[in-house]
Design a protein around this nucleic acid. Structure first.
Lengths: 200, 200
DNA sequence: TGGCATACTAGAACACGTTCCTGTTTCTGG
DNA sequence: CCAGAAACAGGAACGTGTTCTAGTATGCCA
């Protein structure tokens, strides 16, 4: 009759060993996903590669979807840090938004299996993954809004328009995963949406 | 060493008994989904309720995702038949598109668990389900394009704009399933997207 | 330092989608 | 009507995500 509170491990109180475990887990996840996509990320395999017991893996990430969405969040952060170093070039909001979205799209297409794994997890996310999903979406939204503004003043529907573009962006990735469009068409469709939606 | 060709059952050569089986299966699927959502649609249970062996169920629908996407296709067809009886009211393309999309959204929200099951399946669909997914999307796209045109002439980007709206429509349903927005916000966001995207 | 809660390991156990096997029924061509 | 093929029933078996159990290690507080 122990009072095991099942406290989730929060980032704040993490010891060094725990941070190391978390990072080994995420690294193993990204490696497996990059090599074999969603189905290749098997929880037993992730645990083994990160030298962590299966139960421990589940203590850090309560489901496969949590795990992959968290991995995506860390990837988006990396991408965001890289892109926000300098202002996106372009005269219009559409051109600047196109710049960052093209870079993001190309960056993802460089590792198609990793992308498949992460996007599929995003789609499978239910309410229990809301926090992790939100951090991915915030990262993407920031990227787009910053680019649109281009250092200039904010405009009335910036955030809403960025949300629409992000929806289209995700939807086109899904269409690609679903075999409905080719990889090359992903960017073409997104670009078309940008020009239709952002008519300055 | 039999030469079982594992011929999929196509709609054309179906006997009456086969059509009946297919419909019992779809009915059982919709009933289970409406009651308990995606996870309540368990293949063993569907088989039992439709009085069909598990193997037979898999002969008709090669996976749970195929099954649910097919169910959605039949629902979209029903909805489409009902809505296309008369022209959508409204002066502008935005108003007419809003009309059909609001009806569709409301219709889905009446059975939230069923919607959850179908949308989740759409998102989980990989390339092997492309045919079924395409039929759902064509149904929705027709609905939107017809409403936009409102009996008038077609315009340059009708189809592309309808595709964007459909992407947003799906994305907002997912956001709702993912607990990121409330049911009531689904329609508000879609409506906003319509006014932003369809500025006549 | 000792005691105790918490975290971790190792691995069994469970659930459900999916596959496979064996025997039976139904359909179809001759 | 008959023979073979295809479809079906019933159910065992398998894979992988998830949960649970028992024992061990680690960090914290008096």
């Amino acid at each position: 009759m122990t009072s095991t509170a099942a406290t989730a491990i929060t980032a704040e109180t993490e010891t060094a060993a725990q941070r190391a475990r978390r990072e080994r887990i995420l690294a193993a996840t990204l490696a497996l996903a990059a090599r074999g996509g969603y189905e290749a990320v098997q929880m037993r395999e992730v645990a083994e590669r990160s030298e962590v017991a299966l139960g421990t893996l589940y203590r850090y990430f309560p489901s496969k979807v949590h795990l992959l969405v968290s991995a995506m969040a860390s990837e988006v952060e990396r991408l965001s840090a890289r892109l926000q170093k300098r202002q996106a070039p372009g005269e219009t909001r559409a051109e600047r938004a196109a710049f960052v979205l093209e870079r993001s799209t190309r960056s993802l297409q460089r590792e198609p299996l990793l992308t498949e794994a992460m996007i599929r997890a995003m789609m499978a996310a239910d309410a229990t993954v809301a926090t992790e999903v939100a951090s991915v979406r915030e990262g993407m939204a920031d990227l787009i809004v910053q680019a649109m503004r281009g250092g200039g003043p904010e405009q009335e529907h910036d955030v809403d328009l960025a949300a629409i573009l992000q929806d289209v962006w995700f939807a086109r990735q899904i269409a690609w995963l679903g075999g409905r469009i080719e990889a090359a068409d992903v960017w073409r469709d997104i670009h078309l949406a940008i020009t239709l939606v952002l008519r300055d």
